[in-house]
Design a protein around this nucleic acid. Sequence first.
DNA 1: CGGTTTTGACCTGCGC
DNA 2: GCGCAGGTCAAAACCG
Length: 284
Amino acid sequence: MSRPGPWRPSSPRSARRTGGSARGSPTCTPARSPGRVRTPRTRRAPRKQRRRRRWQLAESRKRNRDSVDDPPSSGDADADADASGRAEAVESPRPSDAFEFEGSCRRIKVSRVCTRIDPSDTSLTVKDGYQWRKYGQKVTRDNPSPRAYFRCAFAPSCPVKKKVQRSAEDSSVLVATYEGEHNHQCPTRAGELPSCAARGGPVPCSISINSSGPTITLDLTKNGADGVRVLDATGAPDLKKLCQEVASVEFRTALVEQMASSLTRDSKFTDALAAAILKQLPDY
DNA sequence: CGGTTTTGACCTGCGC
DNA sequence: GCGCAGGTCAAAACCG
């Protein structure tokens, strides 16, 4: 059903659009080659079908919302099939905090991680040990810098998504928003991960060293650790002070608690641990 | 040549 | 109902 040749929008709604990004603002990073000319492509084909599919998805979402105690049958596995239907559950009332959204029928973890980068670095990439595939970029209203959308590329069925955008206040800070939990092991190889999080779920901390100096960003808000919420060392003028803070008993306790909590929630880890313990025990 | 990125078009929810 | 804004799709370009 794709229309051959150039297609021009004829509806007023389409005519309003001057580009892919919101309000036609100069969105995205320029193409790799300056002289790149995009040829008109054929329209996305089965629009009616897609519309119908979306409508069906919306209907099923409504039904899910209505039947509050109807548990998700397949967990996150169905989430990727419903690419556009998660937003209502994801939007955070406290967007700056990592939190676990426990909705009526679906549990979506959302967390934010700030990472210091070189201000001249225009690539919206946050190395967290996972493989991400970029599927979109958009300029948002409240921030002049574009927001990049990533999906976990390691496992096709992994529902985790990541939004990366520079901080509006400090362009040298990248804010990564993770949605969902990985349903696979972290593919991290040695030396690739500057983060202390190597298991499913959002990254609670990240450490990076770049030309602008070392950066340690910690996000321990998931469990509301006592007093320790977000420690962002990026603005710390004194690295020694930072190290003292990191080495403090309170901080280490909170970190250990956070890690222990994360590990004990991982059934694979507990299973493996139990198996290892059993191995060490004499035959019984 | 296949995987990834870019980016214009489209969809949907929400506020008015 | 309309417009806005965020999110996603997917063709084309790019790159290893």
